[in-house]
């Protein structure tokens, strides 16, 4: 059970939200020259840290907008909430998985 602070609606129970998994994953910019290994990584391989994790959430039962959360996957403590187009605090050490985004 978590209280997730939606940047637009304020703190709400996690049952109101949909999960979008790891944030900042960019589609390969040149599909024609992307290798099978790179496609596999884009499609199936995601970070899965025990600790701070930058992830996407959507306030499904509220404003229905996507936003980002840095959350500790071991303690469920929410360390940062930020909007689409913004970046995680470098001090949290969860830099974007793919710099292209």
């Amino acid at each position: 059970m978590m209280l997730i602070p939606c940047p637009w609606c304020g703190p709400r129970d996690d049952s109101e939200f949909a999960y979008g998994n790891q944030a900042h994953i960019a589609r390969p910019s040149d599909p024609a020259s992307t290798s099978d290994q790179e496609w596999a990584e884009y499609l199936y391989f995601r970070d899965n840290p025990k600790g701070p994790f930058a992830e996407r959430w959507m306030h499904a039962a509220g404003c229905r907008r996507w936003f980002h959360v840095v959350r500790d996957t071991n303690s469920h403590v929410i360390l940062q909430v930020y909007k689409v187009g913004e970046w995680p605090d470098p001090a949290l050490g969860v830099g974007p998985a793919n710099k292209e985004s």
């Binding site: 049952s15 994790f53 992830e55 469920h76």
Partner: peptide
């Protein structure tokens, strides 16, 4: 639960 976790607990919903 839909989210990643290592906490060995989930949400009440």
């Amino acid at each position: 639960d839909s989210y990643n976790s290592y906490a060995q607990r989930g949400s009440l919903n």
